[in-house]
Structure formats: C-alpha cells, structure tokens
Design a protein around this nucleic acid. Structure first.
Lengths: 332, 332
DNA sequence: TTGAAAGCGCTAACAC
DNA sequence: GTGTTAGCGCTTTCAA
C-alpha cells in the first residue's frame, strides 16, 4: 500500500502527532526533529492523504462551483477568475455544469455538500425557493456569481444590470434612434428581467408608448442572433439601432445584417452586453457593456473564503460591482 | 452536528451496516427494512459524507482535470466533454488551470493525487520526463487529452495533427498558392511540432526549397494573428494563402487583412485549425481542420474510467481520432 | 517539545 | 438478511 503518516512516524522514531505537526508547519517542533521527519518523508515519498485529513479536520480545502455551461465564453471567463482566487487561497475547485436545468442544479448542490466542500459558488438563471431550501440544508457558505436571488437571502456579486441596460439604450437613443429594438435571451432569469427593465425605462422616457414588436425574444446563441435579424428585416421600416442582451448574440446580429448587405454601424447600430473577448473579435468591433467577469468570479470567491475562513461577519451581502460602457465601432 | 449513519441506524433500530446497504442500493436488504431505513433517512435529513466514504472505500468518485486555461475557447469545449462523460459515470471533476507552467503542472498533479482522485485527465503543451515521473508517483490512471507524450508512456487521445496539417496545406497549394505561409503558435509542444511537420511535408512536395520567412511564429492569441499580418504585409509579394495553427489566431489574421483593406478569400486565403465555435462566428466563415474536442475529452474520460473501474486492460493506449476538413468561405 | 489515544463517518469482511 | 467489528489515514485534545 501507500506510505502513511504512521510509516513515517515509525521510521523517524517519533509519534504520528509530530509528523502531523511538521506536515502542517506547526511551529511547536524542535528544528532537529523537524529535519529528521522531513528527511524520512522525502525518503519514503510520503504524500498526505487529503481525504483522511478532510475527515479528521472537517475541512476539505475545496470549493464547489456550479456553472450553467463551462463552454460558454462568458462563464468560462468567470470560472477562470474563480479558480485563480481559489488557488491563491489554496483551494481547489469541483466544477459541474448544470445547463440551467433545475433538477440537475438541485442535485448538484446536494452532491457538493456530500463531498463536503468548504464553500460553494453558484451560477444560474433562476433562484427559486427550492434552490434556497436546498442551499440551506447545509451550513456551508454559498455565494452567487452573476446570479440574482430576488429575496436577497444568499450573498451575491453582480453589476447593476438595469442601470447598465438603461445607459446602453439611452446611448442608442441619443444617437438618433428613438425606439431601439431589444433582443433578449429566452431564458427566465432575474438578470434578464433587470436588463429588460432598464431598456424599458429608457424607452419610456422618450416614447409615448412602447412598441411590443420591437422587443424580440431569441435563444441565447450566436445563431439566434442571426435568426433575430430575419425577424427584424421582415418589418417594414425597422428602427436602426439594436440592443442585444449578450455579446455572442450581438455578433450574430451584426453578421445577420452584413449577410444581408446591410452595413453596421452606418445603416444600423448594434450594442452588446458583457464585453467578453468576442467583442473585439468582430468587424466592426462591438460596443458593449463591460461586466467584470473575472472580478465577479474572483470577488465572490474572496468574499466567500474570507467569510468562512475567518468566520467574520460580512458587511455587505450583496455586492454590486461597477460596470461601464465601451464604445467601439458597431455604434456611431 | 450533522446527522450520521449512526444516528440513522439508532433511530431505525438497525445496524450501521444495514443503513450503509440501503444507501448503497445493496440488494441484500429486506424490502420492509429498506423502507423503514429510507423513511428515517428522509425524516432525519441524512446526507452521506462522501469524504468518510472515500476514506473507507478508497474511491472518491472524482477525477482530476488539469487544463492550460479554462477560459480558452478550445479547452473549455474539451472540458465540457469531459464533465459530461464524467457525470454520466457518476464522477465529479476537480478542475485546475496550469497556464502550461511546468512547476504549476507538477504541483497540480501532486495535489490531485493528495486529494485521492480516482483518475486524472491531463492537458498541456509538453510532457517532460519530470511530468512522467510525477505522474508515475501514483498508481492512479492518467489520460492525456489533446496532448502528446512522445515516449507514449501515458495513454492519450488525439487526432493525427501532422496528417491534418498536411492536408490543409495541400488544399491551399491545390488552390494555387505554391508556398503558403504558416503561422504557428510560439509555445513548444509536440502538437505544434507535428502540425509544423505536416505543413513542411506538403511544402516540400511542391517546392524546391522552403522559404523560412514564410514561417511565422506568433503568440497564441487573437491579437497575435493580427500582428502576424503586419509582418506579412511588410514582405513584398507575399503568398496569397495562410495556414494558421489555431482558429482564434486565424480570426485575427482574417481581421488583420480586412483592416488593411485586403479581401478574404479573394486576395488572400486563410485556413484555421480546431473548428472551435469561432470558425462560424466570422465573416467570411473559416475553413478549418475539425478536431472533435468534445469527443477527445469524452473519449478520454471514458477510456480512463472504464479502464480503472473494470480494471480491464486497454487494447490501444494511444487513440487517434479521425479529423476532417470543413471548407467554408475563407478559402476559394 | 513530544506522545497517547480518541475519534472523524463510513465500508467491508465476517459471523450469525 | 442483518449485526459486529475493524479499520481507512489523519487531526486534535490532553498529559507529560
């Protein structure tokens, strides 16, 4: 079998406790003893068993991450932020894709708790009562990243989606289109609702009434952006500015127009959301709302970790990070 | 404290063993007993502790995944395949980014083993002797995904990069450019070398000598694709076909030319590699080598899991998956 | 500064 | 079918 702490103790003529102390860098060990132990650890190729340690200490130094889809450009950037900060604090990440499927989400939360994660970062469209209930079945700290819980029961990190959407729409209006089109992602989520509210607010400030046909519900993919354009082109005299709920869809929108010989931004302006790497990987480059994905992930992790490590009480449960708008070439 | 298997046993008037049996779906339990136990599990809200289970059974039902960068579009698609198959087999994934930094890679391998993963999927540029040595410090099965170990010591899943690059280059030559340019990613990796060899093979078949200046070493990013174009435009009379080592760089190349008023594919053809989602998210859409990322991840996981689960001997350690070429609109 | 010993919560023989 | 009993490899009092 593998070499255990007991083997090291025996070979070094000390007790298991002493070996444990040197492995855990406990200062209460005489330098000579420490050296002796270190040597036999080296000699035997001893590697501490984190599972045994976890059982004894009730800490696993791993945090769970539940994410809709790691292959999404938006979420993979978030995940990268999370892992970096986790690494910084000596944690590892158990990562699972939920596909925003409620059953799967609930099951994953349970699995994470079974695996005794020290903390959990959760991303998803909708936080229902069932989610909250499931989350509360364990005292393990949880934080939501880019995910809103309207009840504000669970700590979270977000930007002000409503305000951001309001600003984006207003900019488009200021550019000369009184009632820009809005393309929203189909999924039900508070984040989407907030974006929509922001759009609506700006529209109402400049229009007697809102035109329902200018609000298009699409999928969430690049292709649905393209498809949405078909819908738009079917309208006679459509507005010449489009605000799109995500960058990926916005790329689809740009290409949809271009494929039909319509020039962006000369003939129609396009505004995205997120500022993923995609935003600079199109021509024209995409004007968009900057959401600090990496920080949302990182800040959440930090929060969560410090909170539970030092058992300190958190001042502000629901963090709103600043957003901004970058104007690139898809708008005038 | 939390409710343990012991609490359930006491409350249900059975032994721990029996509770364990029903939790693990062992058939040797009388239906009535099972029901009774299930009820008290429900009533007490008992949740098995996977860490304790892992210690006792020496199985954690988690596999480690070491990946260069989860925010890379290529790798995140791979990771998605891995997690899906892992989920199918009831495993979870511990995911860590290595940034292809050797020290970090070595450290991560060790961490994964400390955490007692049941298997490990490794992705990285270079497999050195140190890597192999580290990997061999544990009997845990390891599989390389989209990563080549020239010594063929470690099981792996790849495509035939050399052949694919040969075909791509040949196609470009067939289109009329005798000596296409090749833009390679800077990092040292066997995968890159193979691609380069394939390119060279095709070039040599049609040219007396290879023009060193037509081989450009760039970074690995979108931006380095753009930068490479600057280098190309500085040559008087450069070849009118470019083969690029990755899709992301290829997008940069396309945009680099377009930004300089040069039309793709009319004035210059561009050929990518990987067939990430990016390939259809440009105009013109990108002709590229299809590498089945999702399957590479999935197939690897399957291999690894079946191998160690059933302890079956593997027929072919080093799997080569078929590749293909999709011609889209960036070539003639 | 060090050691002895009691768990952590579960699985896995083995016995009945 | 069910219970008893050792551990799994480590941390953590508590004493010395």
């Amino acid at each position: 079998m593998n070499v255990t702490i007991y083997d090291v103790a025996r070979e070094a003529n000390v007790s298991m406790a002493t070996v444990s102390r040197v492995v855990n860098a406990n200062p209460n060990v005489k330098p000579a003893t420490r050296k002796k132990v270190l040597n036999t650890i080296e000699r035997l190729g001893y590697r501490p068993n984190a599972v045994a340690r976890g059982l004894a200490s009730k800490k696993t130094t791993t945090v769970g991450v539940i994410i809709p889809d790691i292959s999404s450009i938006f979420f993979s950037e978030l995940a990268r932020g999370i892992d970096d900060i986790a690494t910084m604090y000596k944690y590892n990440i158990i990562l699972s894709n939920s596909d925003q499927n409620k059953e799967k989400e609930l099951r994953l939360i349970n699995t994470m708790f079974e695996k005794q994660v020290d903390g959990l970062i959760y991303m998803g469209a909708e936080i229902t009562e069932d989610h909250i209930h499931q989350l509360k079945t364990s005292p393990v700290p949880v934080a939501l990243a880019a995910t809103i819980d309207s009840s504000e029961t669970i700590p979270s990190v977000n930007i002000d989606y409503e305000q951001a959407a309001y600003e984006a729409t207003s900019l488009l209006i200021g550019n000369g289109t009184k009632h820009p089109i809005y393309i929203t992602a189909q999924e039900e989520s508070v984040v989407n609702t907030k974006k929509y509210d922001g759009y609506l607010k700006a529209i109402k400030e400049h229009n007697k009434e809102v035109q329902e046909e200018y609000i298009i519900t699409a999928g969430t993919s690049y292709q649905s952006g393209i498809d949405a354009v078909t819908e738009i082109l079917a309208m006679k005299n459509y507005p010449k500015a489009i605000f799109v709920a995500t960058d990926e869809m916005a790329l689809g929108v740009i290409h949809g127009f271009q494929d039909n010989g319509i020039k962006v931004p000369d003939e129609v302006e396009v505004f995205g959301f997120d500022n993923t790497r995609l935003a600079t990987m199109v021509r024209p480059t995409l004007t968009t709302v900057v959401q600090p994905m990496y920080d949302i992930g990182g800040a959440v992790a930090m929060r969560l970790l410090t909170k539970y490590m030092n058992k300190e009480t958190v001042e502000e449960q629901n963090v709103i990070l600043p957003h901004q708008i970058v104007e690139r070439n898809s708008t005038k």
